[in-house]
Amino acid sequence: MRSDAPAGRPNQLFRNLNSKIALIPMMLVALVVFLGGTVWTVVYSFTNSKLLPRLKFVGLEQYERLWDAPRWIISIQNLAIYGILSLIFSLVIGFVLAALMDQKIRFENTFRTIFLYPFALSFIVTGLVWQWVLNPEYGVQFIVRSLGFTSFQFDPLYNADIVIYGILIAGLWQGTGLVMCLMLAGLRGIDEDIWKAARVDGIPMWRTYIFIIIPMMRPVFITTLVLIASSIVKVYDLVVAQTSGGPGIASEVPAKYVYDYMFQAQNLGQGFAASTMMLITVAIIVIPWAYLEFGGKKRG
Protein backbone atom coordinates (compact mmCIF):
# COMPACT_ATOMS: atom_id res chain seq x y z
CA MET A 1 0.00 0.00 0.00
CA ARG A 2 2.83 2.33 0.79
CA SER A 3 5.20 1.31 -1.96
CA ASP A 4 5.36 4.93 -3.08
CA ALA A 5 6.41 6.08 0.38
CA PRO A 6 9.65 8.05 0.49
CA ALA A 7 12.79 5.97 0.84
CA GLY A 8 14.06 5.52 4.33
CA ARG A 9 10.67 4.92 5.91
CA PRO A 10 10.10 1.21 6.36
CA ASN A 11 7.16 -0.24 4.52
CA GLN A 12 4.30 -1.03 6.90
CA LEU A 13 3.78 -4.37 5.23
CA PHE A 14 7.37 -5.44 5.84
CA ARG A 15 7.61 -4.53 9.47
CA ASN A 16 8.36 -7.50 11.69
CA LEU A 17 8.83 -9.44 8.51
CA ASN A 18 10.24 -12.52 10.23
CA SER A 19 7.27 -13.01 12.47
CA LYS A 20 4.87 -12.41 9.60
CA ILE A 21 6.59 -15.07 7.51
CA ALA A 22 6.47 -17.41 10.46
CA LEU A 23 2.72 -16.82 10.73
CA ILE A 24 1.97 -17.62 7.10
CA PRO A 25 1.49 -21.40 7.58
CA MET A 26 -0.91 -20.84 10.45
CA MET A 27 -2.85 -18.24 8.50
CA LEU A 28 -3.06 -20.53 5.51
CA VAL A 29 -4.32 -23.37 7.68
CA ALA A 30 -6.91 -21.11 9.28
CA LEU A 31 -8.09 -19.72 5.96
CA VAL A 32 -7.99 -22.83 3.80
CA VAL A 33 -8.77 -25.60 6.25
CA PHE A 34 -11.11 -23.95 8.73
CA LEU A 35 -12.78 -21.20 6.79
CA GLY A 36 -12.54 -22.91 3.40
CA GLY A 37 -13.73 -26.21 4.80
CA THR A 38 -16.63 -24.54 6.54
CA VAL A 39 -17.78 -22.68 3.45
CA TRP A 40 -17.41 -25.82 1.35
CA THR A 41 -19.49 -27.82 3.81
CA VAL A 42 -22.25 -25.24 3.93
CA VAL A 43 -22.39 -25.00 0.13
CA TYR A 44 -22.56 -28.76 -0.31
CA SER A 45 -25.27 -29.06 2.33
CA PHE A 46 -27.62 -27.62 -0.29
CA THR A 47 -26.81 -30.39 -2.77
CA ASN A 48 -27.96 -33.98 -3.01
CA SER A 49 -24.41 -35.37 -2.72
CA LYS A 50 -24.39 -39.04 -1.89
CA LEU A 51 -21.13 -40.92 -1.37
CA LEU A 52 -19.11 -38.40 -3.36
CA PRO A 53 -19.66 -34.64 -3.40
CA ARG A 54 -21.40 -33.25 -6.48
CA LEU A 55 -22.86 -29.85 -7.16
CA LYS A 56 -26.52 -30.57 -7.83
CA PHE A 57 -28.50 -28.13 -5.77
CA VAL A 58 -31.76 -29.21 -4.19
CA GLY A 59 -32.47 -26.18 -2.03
CA LEU A 60 -33.45 -26.82 1.54
CA GLU A 61 -34.45 -30.45 1.00
CA GLN A 62 -31.68 -31.84 3.21
CA TYR A 63 -32.69 -29.52 6.05
CA GLU A 64 -36.35 -30.42 5.77
CA ARG A 65 -35.48 -34.07 5.96
CA LEU A 66 -33.13 -33.43 8.86
CA TRP A 67 -35.80 -31.78 10.99
CA ASP A 68 -38.27 -34.53 10.11
CA ALA A 69 -35.92 -37.25 11.31
CA PRO A 70 -36.82 -38.48 14.82
CA ARG A 71 -33.21 -39.39 15.38
CA TRP A 72 -32.02 -35.82 14.84
CA ILE A 73 -34.63 -34.45 17.23
CA ILE A 74 -33.55 -36.95 19.89
CA SER A 75 -29.92 -36.03 19.25
CA ILE A 76 -30.63 -32.34 19.80
CA GLN A 77 -32.59 -33.04 22.99
CA ASN A 78 -29.79 -35.21 24.30
CA LEU A 79 -27.22 -32.57 23.55
CA ALA A 80 -29.30 -29.96 25.34
CA ILE A 81 -29.70 -32.13 28.45
CA TYR A 82 -26.08 -33.21 28.43
CA GLY A 83 -24.85 -29.70 27.68
CA ILE A 84 -26.79 -27.78 30.29
CA LEU A 85 -26.25 -30.31 33.07
CA SER A 86 -22.58 -30.86 32.35
CA LEU A 87 -22.00 -27.11 32.25
CA ILE A 88 -23.68 -26.60 35.62
CA PHE A 89 -22.27 -29.63 37.35
CA SER A 90 -18.70 -29.37 36.15
CA LEU A 91 -18.55 -25.71 37.15
CA VAL A 92 -20.14 -26.28 40.55
CA ILE A 93 -18.29 -29.48 41.40
CA GLY A 94 -15.04 -28.13 39.99
CA PHE A 95 -15.28 -24.95 42.00
CA VAL A 96 -16.26 -26.68 45.23
CA LEU A 97 -13.39 -29.12 44.87
CA ALA A 98 -10.98 -26.27 44.19
CA ALA A 99 -12.27 -24.32 47.18
CA LEU A 100 -11.79 -27.38 49.40
CA MET A 101 -8.30 -27.86 47.98
CA ASP A 102 -7.53 -24.28 48.81
CA GLN A 103 -8.01 -24.78 52.56
CA LYS A 104 -4.32 -25.55 53.02
CA ILE A 105 -5.03 -29.24 53.43
CA ARG A 106 -2.45 -31.95 53.75
CA PHE A 107 -1.48 -34.07 50.72
CA GLU A 108 -2.89 -31.49 48.37
CA ASN A 109 -0.62 -32.66 45.57
CA THR A 110 -1.86 -36.20 45.92
CA PHE A 111 -5.50 -35.18 45.81
CA ARG A 112 -4.90 -32.88 42.88
CA THR A 113 -3.30 -35.70 40.95
CA ILE A 114 -6.16 -38.07 41.75
CA PHE A 115 -8.81 -35.62 40.63
CA LEU A 116 -6.97 -34.61 37.49
CA TYR A 117 -6.09 -38.15 36.50
CA PRO A 118 -9.30 -39.00 34.62
CA PHE A 119 -8.62 -36.10 32.29
CA ALA A 120 -5.51 -37.91 31.10
CA LEU A 121 -7.73 -40.68 29.74
CA SER A 122 -9.36 -40.41 26.35
CA PHE A 123 -13.12 -40.37 26.04
CA ILE A 124 -12.96 -43.85 24.53
CA VAL A 125 -11.29 -45.30 27.61
CA THR A 126 -13.57 -43.31 29.90
CA GLY A 127 -16.59 -44.60 28.01
CA LEU A 128 -15.48 -48.22 28.22
CA VAL A 129 -14.67 -48.00 31.92
CA TRP A 130 -18.06 -46.52 32.70
CA GLN A 131 -19.78 -49.00 30.45
CA TRP A 132 -18.41 -51.69 32.72
CA VAL A 133 -19.13 -49.78 35.92
CA LEU A 134 -22.74 -49.22 34.91
CA ASN A 135 -23.30 -52.69 33.49
CA PRO A 136 -26.01 -54.31 35.61
CA GLU A 137 -24.41 -57.74 35.44
CA TYR A 138 -21.00 -56.89 36.86
CA GLY A 139 -21.02 -53.22 37.79
CA VAL A 140 -22.56 -51.11 40.53
CA GLN A 141 -25.88 -52.94 40.48
CA PHE A 142 -24.18 -56.31 40.88
CA ILE A 143 -22.06 -55.12 43.80
CA VAL A 144 -24.96 -53.54 45.68
CA ARG A 145 -27.11 -56.59 45.09
CA SER A 146 -24.42 -58.91 46.34
CA LEU A 147 -24.33 -56.82 49.54
CA GLY A 148 -27.87 -57.98 50.18
CA PHE A 149 -30.07 -55.33 48.54
CA THR A 150 -31.46 -57.72 45.98
CA SER A 151 -34.10 -55.39 44.58
CA PHE A 152 -31.62 -52.62 43.89
CA GLN A 153 -31.79 -51.48 40.30
CA PHE A 154 -29.28 -49.23 38.60
CA ASP A 155 -28.84 -49.79 34.87
CA PRO A 156 -28.88 -46.36 33.23
CA LEU A 157 -27.21 -47.58 30.04
CA TYR A 158 -30.00 -50.07 29.36
CA ASN A 159 -32.88 -47.73 30.08
CA ALA A 160 -33.80 -45.45 27.20
CA ASP A 161 -35.27 -42.82 29.52
CA ILE A 162 -32.17 -42.17 31.59
CA VAL A 163 -29.32 -43.33 29.39
CA ILE A 164 -28.11 -39.79 28.75
CA TYR A 165 -27.50 -39.35 32.47
CA GLY A 166 -25.29 -42.42 32.44
CA ILE A 167 -23.21 -40.70 29.80
CA LEU A 168 -23.27 -37.46 31.79
CA ILE A 169 -21.77 -39.22 34.81
CA ALA A 170 -18.85 -40.44 32.73
CA GLY A 171 -18.39 -37.04 31.13
CA LEU A 172 -18.32 -35.31 34.52
CA TRP A 173 -15.92 -37.83 35.98
CA GLN A 174 -13.56 -37.14 33.13
CA GLY A 175 -13.92 -33.38 32.90
CA THR A 176 -14.29 -31.94 36.40
CA GLY A 177 -10.63 -32.53 37.31
CA LEU A 178 -9.51 -30.03 34.73
CA VAL A 179 -12.12 -27.49 35.85
CA MET A 180 -10.89 -27.95 39.40
CA CYS A 181 -7.29 -27.26 38.40
CA LEU A 182 -8.23 -24.12 36.47
CA MET A 183 -10.31 -22.89 39.39
CA LEU A 184 -7.54 -23.66 41.83
CA ALA A 185 -5.11 -21.64 39.75
CA GLY A 186 -7.64 -18.82 39.77
CA LEU A 187 -8.06 -19.03 43.55
CA ARG A 188 -4.31 -18.95 44.02
CA GLY A 189 -4.20 -15.80 41.95
CA ILE A 190 -6.38 -13.98 44.48
CA ASP A 191 -4.35 -11.73 46.74
CA GLU A 192 -4.07 -12.88 50.39
CA ASP A 193 -4.89 -9.34 51.47
CA ILE A 194 -8.41 -9.64 50.13
CA TRP A 195 -9.02 -12.57 52.42
CA LYS A 196 -7.53 -10.69 55.35
CA ALA A 197 -9.67 -7.65 54.63
CA ALA A 198 -12.79 -9.80 54.43
CA ARG A 199 -11.92 -11.42 57.73
CA VAL A 200 -11.38 -8.07 59.39
CA ASP A 201 -14.83 -7.00 58.17
CA GLY A 202 -16.27 -10.18 59.62
CA ILE A 203 -17.68 -11.48 56.36
CA PRO A 204 -18.35 -15.21 56.55
CA MET A 205 -16.30 -17.41 54.29
CA TRP A 206 -19.09 -18.52 51.96
CA ARG A 207 -20.10 -14.92 51.33
CA THR A 208 -16.51 -13.98 50.62
CA TYR A 209 -16.39 -16.72 48.01
CA ILE A 210 -19.65 -15.86 46.31
CA PHE A 211 -19.57 -12.07 46.39
CA ILE A 212 -15.87 -11.27 46.26
CA ILE A 213 -13.77 -14.15 45.00
CA ILE A 214 -15.98 -15.44 42.18
CA PRO A 215 -16.48 -12.03 40.56
CA MET A 216 -12.72 -11.55 40.72
CA MET A 217 -12.21 -14.89 38.96
CA ARG A 218 -14.25 -13.89 35.94
CA PRO A 219 -11.44 -14.53 33.38
CA VAL A 220 -10.89 -18.03 34.73
CA PHE A 221 -14.60 -18.76 34.53
CA ILE A 222 -14.72 -17.62 30.94
CA THR A 223 -11.77 -19.79 29.95
CA THR A 224 -13.39 -22.75 31.67
CA LEU A 225 -16.74 -22.06 30.03
CA VAL A 226 -15.20 -22.06 26.56
CA LEU A 227 -13.33 -25.30 27.27
CA ILE A 228 -16.43 -27.08 28.61
CA ALA A 229 -18.70 -25.77 25.91
CA SER A 230 -16.44 -26.93 23.10
CA SER A 231 -16.14 -30.38 24.63
CA ILE A 232 -19.94 -30.57 24.89
CA VAL A 233 -20.67 -29.73 21.26
CA LYS A 234 -18.22 -32.26 19.92
CA VAL A 235 -19.16 -35.11 22.26
CA TYR A 236 -19.04 -38.22 20.12
CA ASP A 237 -16.46 -40.76 21.20
CA LEU A 238 -17.86 -41.01 24.71
CA VAL A 239 -21.24 -42.06 23.34
CA VAL A 240 -19.73 -44.45 20.82
CA ALA A 241 -17.66 -46.19 23.47
CA GLN A 242 -20.37 -46.31 26.10
CA THR A 243 -23.61 -47.09 24.28
CA SER A 244 -23.00 -46.61 20.53
CA GLY A 245 -26.18 -44.55 20.59
CA GLY A 246 -28.30 -47.19 22.22
CA PRO A 247 -30.54 -48.54 23.51
CA GLY A 248 -32.13 -47.97 20.14
CA ILE A 249 -31.39 -44.36 19.35
CA ALA A 250 -31.92 -43.05 22.87
CA SER A 251 -28.42 -41.70 23.41
CA GLU A 252 -27.63 -40.36 19.96
CA VAL A 253 -25.86 -37.00 19.67
CA PRO A 254 -25.59 -34.61 16.70
CA ALA A 255 -21.92 -35.33 15.98
CA LYS A 256 -22.73 -39.02 15.65
CA TYR A 257 -25.61 -38.27 13.31
CA VAL A 258 -23.18 -36.37 11.09
CA TYR A 259 -20.68 -39.20 11.01
CA ASP A 260 -23.23 -41.96 10.49
CA TYR A 261 -25.01 -40.22 7.65
CA MET A 262 -21.84 -39.11 5.91
CA PHE A 263 -20.13 -42.46 5.96
CA GLN A 264 -22.51 -45.28 6.83
CA ALA A 265 -25.51 -44.01 4.92
CA GLN A 266 -23.27 -42.61 2.18
CA ASN A 267 -25.27 -39.39 2.16
CA LEU A 268 -22.87 -36.47 2.37
CA GLY A 269 -25.57 -33.88 1.79
CA GLN A 270 -27.51 -34.99 4.85
CA GLY A 271 -24.38 -35.12 6.99
CA PHE A 272 -23.34 -31.64 5.84
CA ALA A 273 -26.79 -30.26 6.60
CA ALA A 274 -26.53 -31.68 10.12
CA SER A 275 -23.04 -30.28 10.66
CA THR A 276 -24.17 -26.89 9.37
CA MET A 277 -26.93 -26.93 11.95
CA MET A 278 -24.32 -27.65 14.62
CA LEU A 279 -22.29 -24.68 13.39
CA ILE A 280 -25.34 -22.43 13.56
CA THR A 281 -26.08 -23.59 17.10
CA VAL A 282 -22.55 -22.75 18.17
CA ALA A 283 -22.71 -19.41 16.38
CA ILE A 284 -25.97 -18.50 18.13
CA ILE A 285 -24.27 -19.02 21.48
CA VAL A 286 -20.84 -17.64 20.69
CA ILE A 287 -21.63 -14.48 18.69
CA PRO A 288 -23.75 -12.66 21.31
CA TRP A 289 -21.30 -13.71 23.99
CA ALA A 290 -18.27 -12.51 22.00
CA TYR A 291 -20.09 -9.26 21.29
CA LEU A 292 -20.75 -8.65 24.97
CA GLU A 293 -17.29 -9.75 26.00
CA PHE A 294 -15.10 -8.00 23.46
CA GLY A 295 -17.41 -5.46 21.84
CA GLY A 296 -18.37 -4.02 25.19
CA LYS A 297 -14.82 -3.34 26.25
CA LYS A 298 -14.09 -1.23 23.21
CA ARG A 299 -17.12 0.94 23.89
CA GLY A 300 -16.21 1.33 27.50
Partner: peptide
Protein backbone atom coordinates in the same frame (compact mmCIF):
# COMPACT_ATOMS: atom_id res chain seq x y z
CA UNK B 1 -29.62 -47.46 -1.07
CA UNK B 2 -27.40 -47.38 2.02
CA UNK B 3 -29.12 -44.11 2.91
CA UNK B 4 -32.55 -45.74 3.09
CA UNK B 5 -31.10 -48.73 4.90
CA UNK B 6 -29.63 -46.42 7.53
CA UNK B 7 -32.97 -44.69 8.08
CA UNK B 8 -34.58 -48.08 8.52
CA UNK B 9 -31.89 -49.01 11.01
CA UNK B 10 -32.61 -45.87 13.02
CA UNK B 11 -36.29 -46.71 13.06
CA UNK B 12 -36.05 -50.36 13.99
CA UNK B 13 -33.32 -49.99 16.57
CA UNK B 14 -35.56 -47.41 18.22
CA UNK B 15 -38.65 -49.60 17.90
CA UNK B 16 -37.00 -52.69 19.33
CA UNK B 17 -35.30 -50.85 22.20
CA UNK B 18 -38.14 -48.62 23.25
CA UNK B 19 -41.33 -50.41 24.38
CA UNK B 20 -43.22 -47.12 24.55
CA UNK B 21 -43.04 -46.69 20.78
CA UNK B 22 -46.27 -48.11 19.36
CA UNK B 23 -46.43 -50.33 16.30
CA UNK B 24 -48.67 -47.72 14.63
CA UNK B 25 -46.17 -44.91 15.13
CA UNK B 26 -43.38 -47.10 13.82
CA UNK B 27 -45.40 -48.06 10.76
CA UNK B 28 -46.14 -44.42 10.00
CA UNK B 29 -42.44 -43.61 10.04
Amino acid sequence: SPDTQKQKEDLFSQFFANPSMTAEAAQKR
